Amino acid sequence: MTRSVTGRLKEDPKVIVERLVRLADKHDVEFEGDSEKGYAKGKGFHVEYLVVGESCTLTVTKKPLLIPWSLVESQLEKLFND
C-alpha cells in the first residue's frame, strides 16, 4: 500500500535537493535524485518524489509496520504547511 501527498514548494527544488543530500548522508539514508524526481530510503522507509512546476508529490511506498499511516501522512503534510 502506498500513500501520497502533494503540496507547493516554498523554495527552489535545487536548494531543497542540496539540503536533502546533506541530511541523508548525516542520517545514513540512501538518497538518489535531482530537482525533478528521486527517492530516499532508509530506516524502514522508501519515499519517492516528483516535482512538476512549483508542486511536489511525495509517495511513501514502504514504511515500518508499527508506524500508522495517519502519522506518516500528517508528517508529510507538515512539510508543505509549516
Rank of each mutant, 00 (worst) to 15 (best):
C56Y: 02
I67Q: 07
V47D: 06
G7W: 08
N81L: 13
R22K: 15
F45I: 02
V5Y: 10
D82T: 14
L79F: 15
I16N: 03
D34F: 10
K63E: 11
L50I: 00
S74P: 00
V21E: 14
G44S: 04
G44D: 05
L23V: 04
L50D: 13
T6F: 14
K78L: 13
P64C: 02
Q75H: 09
E32G: 09
V51A: 01
V29A: 11
K10E: 14
L76E: 07
V5W: 08
T59E: 04
F45W: 06
S35F: 10
S35W: 14
A24F: 01
T57W: 02
E36M: 02
V52M: 06
T61E: 10
K63I: 04
M1E: 11
E30T: 14
E54R: 01
H27E: 10
L79W: 15
V29D: 05
T59C: 02
H46Y: 10
T6K: 07
E54D: 13
E73S: 08
I67E: 07
P64I: 07
Y39L: 08
V52L: 08
L65M: 10
K14D: 08
M1Q: 10
G44W: 02
V52Y: 09
G7D: 09
L20S: 09
L50H: 13
L23G: 05
E48T: 09
Y39A: 01
N81H: 15
E11R: 05
P68R: 03
D25S: 12
H27R: 06
I67S: 10
K41F: 13
S35Q: 12
R8D: 13
L58V: 01
V52G: 10
N81P: 06
E48K: 03
E48W: 04
K43R: 13
G33S: 05
F80R: 03
D12K: 01
F80L: 06
E48V: 03
E18D: 12
E48G: 01
K62D: 13
L79C: 11
W69C: 00
R22S: 14
Q75D: 12
G53K: 01
S70P: 01
L66Q: 07
G53W: 03
I67A: 10
K26L: 10
I16V: 14
E77W: 01
L71E: 11
K62Y: 04
K37A: 15
E32Y: 14
T61P: 07
Y49F: 04
L66H: 13
V72Q: 05
H46V: 00
S4D: 09
M1K: 05
R3G: 15
